[in-house]
């Protein structure tokens, strides 16, 4: 079995990131970015964060703007 990713997009990671962002949308933008980034740092395994930032590098299709910006802040 291969350890590399299957060819599929990391759909569930995108969905989770967007969902977290969705619950911060009502906050002022800068605070919202911080909240989402903190949440990802506190609760996500590094492998998941890495995988998603790699996905952002390859275009990040489907990620909400707030999720994208938060992931950038994590780098």
């Amino acid at each position: 079995m291969s350890v590399t990713d299957h060819a599929e997009t990391p759909a569930s990671l995108v969905r989770m990131a967007n969902q977290i962002a969705g619950h911060a949308e009502h906050k002022p933008h800068d605070i919202a970015v911080g909240l989402v980034a903190d949440h990802l740092r506190d609760f996500w395994a590094p492998s998941m964060r890495l995988r998603l930032t790699a996905y952002v590098d390859s275009g990040g299709q489907g990620l909400s703007p707030l999720a994208l910006e938060s992931l950038d802040r994590l780098r």
């Binding site: 569930s12 506190d42 609760f43 996500w44 395994a45 590094p46 492998s47 998941m48």
Partner: peptide, 8 residues
């Protein structure tokens, strides 16, 4: 660093 949750 945090580990994986069950669904993860």
């Amino acid at each position: 660093e945090p580990g994986l949750r069950i669904p993860n």
